[in-house]
């Protein structure tokens, strides 16, 4: 037995199997009502029933998510970098950020609808608001923590201008921080897109999920969407970590 449990993946799969088993037993024998708690086999069947809808729903949510995340990086990284490097920029941007940051991104949904209507950019805007601050703040922290001694080393070796120091010293030094920011942003942004679609936008994973509940009362389908939303986020996180850590953690171990 111990030989088997030591094998990679055995205990992990076992724990998932146990949870699924308990779920199935509780749903079928104790609750016995799909609306209150759909059973595992009902949810599994739902995936099969929904197989035609799922790819399109995932694609549209991912597209909006990507729009928001991309803009958050395009805006957040330069502002964060400027704030971390130039004291004056820090003083200029910090008050604005302090005021806007505490507003939950979801509170922007009405304005997203008013400004961008029911477009992918409208939904993307909510993601943008949610993703902006983690990227910006982590970039800022990364740039702020660049050791003076490394900057001086670069200066002595001939990199004397701000642009060169930012590009060849501060940016690579801050890169792990920036990537951490993007990773956090991906989590927040994914929440934002689901919420935006639930409330305002008439397509995508969040909309489907809400539709199953509010109009159709198909809780088994709803739970299938819940699981799907989680799995997509998990896969994105894995892919992102795989792509960045292979390049980055070669040196990051030391710091």
């Amino acid at each position: 037995m111990s030989r088997i449990t030591r094998q990679k993946g055995v205990l992990e799969l076992l724990s998932i199997a146990i949870v699924l088993g308990i779920w199935e037993l509780v749903a079928v024998f104790i609750v016995g009502k799909t609306f209150t708690l759909p059973s595992f086999h009902e949810v599994a069947t739902s995936f099969y029933d929904l197989r035609k809808d799922i790819p399109g729903d995932v694609a549209i949510s991912l597209k909006r998510f990507a729009i928001g995340l991309l803009w958050a990086a395009v805006v957040g990284i330069p502002i964060g970098a400027a704030m971390g490097w130039f004291k004056s920029m820090e003083r200029m941007f910090d008050p604005i950020i302090q005021v806007i940051r505490p507003i939950p991104p979801i509170a922007w949904i009405p304005f997203a609808l008013v400004w961008f209507h029911l477009t992918d950019y409208g939904a993307g805007f909510v993601v943008f608001i949610g993703a902006l601050f983690p990227i910006l703040i982590n970039t800022y922290a990364g740039f702020k923590s660049v050791p003076r001694r490394l900057v001086e080393t670069a200066q002595v070796l001939g990199r004397t201008k701000s642009y060169g120091l930012i590009r060849f010293v501060a940016f690579p030094y801050a890169a792990p921080s920036i990537f951490t920011g993007i990773r956090i942003s991906m989590g927040v942004g994914w929440m934002c897109i689901i919420a935006a679609e639930m409330i305002g936008f008439k397509s995508g994973l969040g909309f489907r999920l809400w539709q199953r509940f509010w109009f159709l009362h198909q809780m088994d389908n709803l739970m299938a969407y819940m699981i799907l939303i989680g799995v997509v986020a998990l896969v994105m996180d894995y892919v992102f970590r795989y792509l960045t850590e292979r390049r980055l953690l070669r040196w990051y171990k030391e710091v």
Binding site: L150, T153, L157, G158, Y173, A175, W251
Partner: peptide, 20 residues
Amino acid sequence: AGPDPNRTMVFQEFNLFPWR
């Protein structure tokens, strides 16, 4: 007046760029 690669420096704490 300022740093110049004609006068380079070796530091006690090495100051290697860890990402390179």
